[in-house]
Design a protein around this nucleic acid. Structure first.
Lengths: 143, 143
DNA sequence: TTGATATTTAGAATGATTCCAATTCTTATG
DNA sequence: CATAAGAATTGGAATCATTCTAAATATCAA
């Protein structure tokens, strides 16, 4: 979780492009999020961000993640009413939650599936987002 | 919301079939839920259930709905972290939330779509449930 | 009818998230 | 580089859907 100058510049760039002021906290939270391809909760992001020199407040982690979601830098995943999880994978994808381990997997969504899904909507329905979540069991450690 | 004897017997039957003791409160909550094809929150079900002679407690509405979901009599719908909604439609269907009105529509899910969706899962993933939610705008008062 | 068991209930407790108001940053402009 | 205006950060309080608790009540098989 140590950042070299190049990485840092890349992060600043992403934030600016997203229309967000590149603050120390946002850079850190974003780097924490990009460092692993999993789906941490706010609390988990906060734990992982504790390495920041002067620490970071939980409220700020909430704020950062909210602004990232608004600006499209990350996605939110909700399963039932469990704590919201955050996901740095921006490609269209579904989620599969293993009900034994609690782990959430990304499942790529081929374009034809998206098209077929849109085709089931009646006339006049204009979707802006689709969310697809499976939940069940899995036999392997895929992706 | 007045029930004749036949309807009441039908409700008792549904509850028994689902393995639930047919109490006055469960019968009432279930009838309230079946009376409209919408997606009320617990609070809304509670309001609609107030007609019950001696009233009904919020905790009981929570309990009833929980037991209905467990036994498969109704489905749960979650949008983000808004209060959970309950849905008496048991056919496979997706949900579409109109972000202007907040209204949730049922969208029938053709079998071929379900099949295609299952086909995108990697080897070893055994889904037990899929949840598909659209959200966007709609131009009409469909279904 | 009765006892064993399940359900109902009001209110307290929980826990994720949001709000608040004071402090500290960021950055455009001089 | 200094400064001011607007943003972001912060700890703690507040919110609010939901769950828990333990006592009262209802259901149902015998």
């Amino acid at each position: 979780m140590r950042l070299n100058t190049t990485d840092l510049e890349r992060l600043k760039g992403s934030l600016k492009q997203a229309g967000l002021k590149p603050t120390r906290q946002r850079e850190h939270v974003l780097s924490v999020l990009l460092a692993r391809r999993d789906h941490p909760t706010v609390e988990e992001v906060w734990q992982r961000s504790r390495t920041l020199s002067r620490g970071i407040s939980l409220a700020t982690v909430y704020n950062c993640l909210e602004s990232f979601v608004e600006s499209g830098l990350v996605k939110q995943v909700n399963y039932e009413r469990e704590p919201t999880r955050y996901c740095p994978n921006l490609r269209p994808h579904a989620h599969f939650k293993d009900q034994e381990t609690g782990r959430v997997y990304d499942i790529d969504l081929p374009n034809e599936v998206l098209i077929q899904l849109n085709s089931i909507l009646p006339e006049g329905f204009r979707p802006e987002a689709i969310e697809i979540s499976f939940h069940g069991r899995t036999k392997q450690q895929a992706s």
